[in-house]
């Protein structure tokens, strides 16, 4: 049988950061993940466990110490960034305060060299999508944190990426905004069929969104759990099946934390 290559394959990925006068900081330890095209994969892990580093390596902003990342059949590194169109949404909005909302969303599109009509059209569509159509001419600092984050989401989506890297994009929002955006987010994913990597430390969010869920351990990050979420979309946040899953993942998560704690005590 011929093995077809995954859309995104992460093989024996290991990353450490040198530290002055100390042992290097081991962030990713032998991580293996294979992601099929069109997946919405949640990566769930404790804070500071190297999830952002993983996204940076996939985007070609940082190099692995050993191991490799292949995206759409090509090896990714800082020198050979993938030509797959990658959109990014960060935990903080990271908007340019001196540009209007419209011009913030438009900037990556201008960089892509799209024609002006197309840019105007996309900016209008994606701002409407995140519910900010009438705020296009505002400056970011005139908006609330939640609204800024929605602008950031619109910016990430407007380039119509083949792969979207989302780094805890809803974690700084109030629960109601987050809930509405999650539903929109899933709808966009279902409509476009693009691949999404969604980093979060919110178990309920991960369960609600994903088609597949990856739990990784604290530094150095390794896969602890990899399970599909088969509940069909559109889902309701109050779905019993999702609750059950959330409960079992939470238990696994607690068990993992406990295990790490014990290991630490053993080595002490």
């Amino acid at each position: 049988m011929i093995m077809t290559e995954s859309y995104l394959s992460i093989d024996h990925l290991h990353k450490e950061f040198p530290r002055r006068g100390d042992r290097p900081l081991n962030v990713l330890g032998d991580l293996d993940v294979h992601v099929e095209e069109g997946a919405l994969l949640s990566i769930l892990g404790p804070s500071g466990c190297g999830k952002s580093t993983l996204l940076n390596i996939i985007n070609g902003l940082d190099d692995a110490t050993t191991g490799e990342v292949r995206l759409a059949g090509r090896k990714v590194s800082t020198r050979t960034r993938s030509d797959v169109k990658i959109g990014v949404v960060f935990q903080q909005p990271r908007l340019l305060a001196w540009r209007t909302v419209r011009n913030n969303v438009a900037l990556p599109l201008q960089e892509m060299g799209l024609p002006k009509d197309e840019i105007d059209d996309r900016v209008r569509r994606y701002l409407a999508l995140v519910g900010l159509a009438e705020f296009a001419d505002y400056y970011p600092l005139q908006l609330s944190g939640g609204m800024q984050q929605r602008v950031s989401l619109a910016r990430g989506l407007a380039i119509e990426p083949d792969l979207l890297l989302a780094d805890e994009p809803f974690s700084a929002l109030d629960e109601f905004s987050a809930r509405r955006l999650r539903q929109e987010f899933v709808r966009i994913w279902a409509e476009t069929g693009k691949t999404i990597l969604f980093v979060t430390h919110n178990i309920r969010e991960a369960v609600f969104l994903s088609s597949r869920l990856l739990v990784i351990t604290d530094r150095p990050a390794r896969t602890y759990l990899d399970l599909p979420v088969t509940v069909p979309h559109p889902r309701k946040p109050e779905d019993d099946l999702l609750f059950e899953l959330e409960k079992s993942v939470t238990e696994d998560f607690m068990r993992m934390e406990e295990q790490v704690r014990l290991e630490k005590e053993m080595t002490r």
Binding site: N59, L61, V88, F90, L96, E111, L165
Partner: peptide, 11 residues
Amino acid sequence: DLIHMGKAFRF
């Protein structure tokens, strides 16, 4: 962080 954003979007 803004520079990082620019690089992430391949400016």
